[in-house]
Amino acid sequence: MSNDPKSIIEELSDHYQISEIKEQKADLLLLKIPKEDAVQFIRELRDGQNYTHLAFMTVIDYIESGIFTLTYMLHNYAAHHNIAVHVDIDREQTEMESIHELWVHAATYQRELREMYGIRFPGSPRLDDDFCLEGWDEIPPMRREFDTVSYSRERFFDREGRITTDPREHMKQIMYPIHTDND
């Protein structure tokens, strides 16, 4: 077993369709793997390549492409090296295989992603339990289309007496009003 991440990837490339490989820095490699092979690939990294630590898992919302990109940040304690495994999933058909059997704390991440992004991980323990939110009935709030400002505006009010003035507009009104009427 080699500790060199590049040769690990080379070796795994024979069995997996690895793409978008990028060495962000000496101790962080980014790559992408198809959804179907992802969990098997991650298991292989954990069991076969010593990437035994799941630092976190999360998702990036590429709303404009209709994609959620999951990130699994794995760490190899011996080599002091991280691999970020990316998996694209459909933003509408948001389902992904669970990894709670690989790491216990993954279940908590999956619970959070279900709540905050609406991604389902079938079989993940207590998946539908509330994580942070109680009685939330809007769209999952971390999705990019959820607009925090308008949500707040609908429910709260601004402090009274708060009015601001634009310096440029203010100077125009007072210093040169007639030089700006339209032609």
Binding site: P167, H170, I174
Partner: peptide
């Protein structure tokens, strides 16, 4: 937390809008 507001006795002049920041400590 900041609004630009008019202050009595300060008029706009070249290089100075005459406005001053008002702070909302809430």
């Amino acid at each position: 937390a900041i609004d630009m507001v008019q202050v009595e006795g300060l008029e706009p002049k070249p290089g100075d809008s005459g406005l001053r920041p008002k702070f909302d400590y809430g």
